[in-house]
Design a protein around this nucleic acid. Sequence first.
DNA 1: CCCGATAGTTCCATTATTCAGAACTCAATT
DNA 2: AATTGAGTTCTGAATAATGGAACTATCGGG
Lengths: 270, 270
Amino acid sequence: MSATDGDIMDKNEAADKRETGTLGKLMVLLDIVTHADGPMRFTDILAVAGQPRGTLHRQLGHLTEEGLLEVLADGRYAPGLRLLDLASRSWARNEFRLIAEPHLNALQQLTGETVHLGVLRGASVIYLDKVEGSQPVRMYSQIGNASPIYCTGVGKAALSALPDDRLDAIISSVSFQHFTENTLTPETLRREIADIRRSGNAFDREEHEVGIRCVAAPVFSEDLSFVGGVSVTGPAYRLTFERLEEWALPVRGAAQSIMSGMRIGLGPRR
Amino acid sequence: MSATDGDIMDKNEAADKRETGTLGKLMVLLDIVTHADGPMRFTDILAVAGQPRGTLHRQLGHLTEEGLLEVLADGRYAPGLRLLDLASRSWARNEFRLIAEPHLNALQQLTGETVHLGVLRGASVIYLDKVEGSQPVRMYSQIGNASPIYCTGVGKAALSALPDDRLDAIISSVSFQHFTENTLTPETLRREIADIRRSGNAFDREEHEVGIRCVAAPVFSEDLSFVGGVSVTGPAYRLTFERLEEWALPVRGAAQSIMSGMRIGLGPRR
DNA sequence: CCCGATAGTTCCATTATTCAGAACTCAATT
DNA sequence: AATTGAGTTCTGAATAATGGAACTATCGGG
């Protein structure tokens, strides 16, 4: 992740239709605390939550009671352990991940580089799985992380699978941050999407982080209930442009295999 | 509410005091879906949730709207991706984990075996971190998992740090399952806790899984806001009883170091 | 020791959400 | 066409959430 995100909130505030009743208000609080740089005091939350003190106090109490938040010894609030428990279950059983797993491993074997599976959620990519070479991995380091859509191979691959109206909606809802000198703008992104649709491959040429390149391909279900991508990522000195081209086909192949698996695994009723 | 009240309620979190209003009801649903073997249909959830149809329908709608649940193409409900996002943040920033990380690595280097950091939540142990040797790890495989307290080294170590009243409360609230022929009973567990308090080390001698042993030590903060443990786990043929004894001291040492770190990192207000 | 801040908690009449159950739609079966 | 199963929508009534103010710490000076 980049060093300091600052306070840039390209959250989905944009199409903020109506709240989800009580739950919506509580989730806003949960987001505030989990997005913070560290534990927050009551007053800190009060300042950004825009709720009366009494109300906020009760809401935090409920979240804490349920284990979604935790109160540290000094009274500050931090994300709670229940989140880990819920997530580990949802991850372990995720259908798409299970279907993709063997293909990700195969791709890792072939290339020797890190392989990712990501899925589109709102205007972000969430990494569902990651297969690395051999070094002991910082495990949550990537999985579950929400990353920008316009400067990752998986993100661009996923976008290319969307119909134009959804694509437009997403592009216009995102604020484009300038990570490296190669980071795309809305215009160049649109042009690239057209390329990806033609060729079937998305590339990240040091657009998010200097020295990191990747080649990706879209993975999606027919009804677009799943829209994501697979990618092979590595350092620029190993992933030369020739190498990227060379791996474009196997990456597309892995994507195809995963999609076949999805049709079998999810197609009929069950 | 209806005639069919007597249902299986032996879920671990059962005996909590008061419900948390609306949130509590929604969390029950979320638990039902995340604990299921696979995606559930509306009717499946209806059967176990004990809510009127209309009510359940709205509740699931809200959870889905927030991304905590997901509706598959065939209408079944599965845990949603938002959970991964929330969890990855909460994990990455977890204070205890960050403090413990270097000590876990050191212990892994020393022993060459898998090292765990776990924390007590209710009557379960949740794994906060895991450092393995060299093979590419199935990452969520363990982290975030809730495991029984009476047959894991970390669980027993954590218990030994509790005062008797809390210990009793937990032991009496748990139903002891018989995993292997070495799995403890409430009585033998109490006796072992006494040993652990004396020696400072907990052992798992194939009590949870045949062929797996481990040596652990408690890690806790002074005010017991954090109660957990570190452990070294491995196959019985490598972790002979002599080896377990040999590593008992370094494991205690790592635990001590983590606790020192906690006092510095969490003690003053900041 | 008291003053004035700052931080967090509790109370309670008002109001908005949620609730429950029935009526309704839609699709497959017979 | 009639029946069953699965899911959705609608309603007044019940309940839980709200918000403002009053209350209690806790702290740092003077």
